[in-house]
Amino acid sequence: MTTNLQTSTKTNTDVVFRTENVNIYYGDFKAVRDVNIEVPRHAITAFIGPSGCGKSTVLRCFNRLNDLIKSFHLDGKILYHGQDLYASDIDAVEVRRQIGMVFQQPNPFPKTIYDNIAFGPRLLGYKGDMDELVENSLRGAAMWDDVKDKLKALGTDLSGGQQQRLCIARAIAVQPEVLLMDEPCAALDPISTLKIEDLMQELKEKYTLVIVTHNMQQASRASDFTAFFNVQANEKGQRTGYIEEHDRTEVIFQSPKQKATQEYVSGRFG
């Protein structure tokens, strides 16, 4: 773990995302407020916190997946290498091609394993050797040996853990710079979960990872940085999320500065 931390500190200067005073709304309802956070390159940043604290909401802003919700809007800036993702001339589809996403529920297409992986590259008009790209992506998700003989099988016929790895392979096939993972292990059994965590350590050599997790042990095991989201209700009972504390994972879990963080990571609330 310490070696991981050293590498990440080394590349710490290289910031992928920086948010500036981001507030997120659904209609009139303020869901998350005052998000100021930096996501460093080639490291795993974990978002933890109680339910309803907006950690998934913030994650989905990083590749503009919230655009699908009609009432959603935000102010402040989300900078990706200094470029504001929500500027008016930015194409959301283009953003999603460079910033991949893995969802809570594995969601392979009802197509073959091969076609699942090839889906993204084909969208991007990939002209190279597709077989090779599929193999590399599956290797990247550490599942090549399991499925190399059944690439023509349906992706939906795999087990839950394998489906999720297929989704990861599908996401990395387009070689994104960033991989967002929204509770990627929530629907998986403990063994599959550990395999995915193991995979994440490999992935961070090449990609920047941001994961949302409910599982604090997972955050402490797998991540380099942790942002703890908390939630506050106003007088009308509306619950607005905010970042209580953001630091290196060992700091968050061993010597947090905020009392709320201390209580949350030691399991006293949430």
Binding site: D91, Q98, L124, G128, N136, S137, A142, A173, V174, Q175
Partner: peptide, 20 residues
Amino acid sequence: MTSPESSPALSKGRSLTRTV
């Protein structure tokens, strides 16, 4: 792990801005 680096980069370096 064999890296997909050998294959041509797909998305890197593409502009994020909207184009027709």
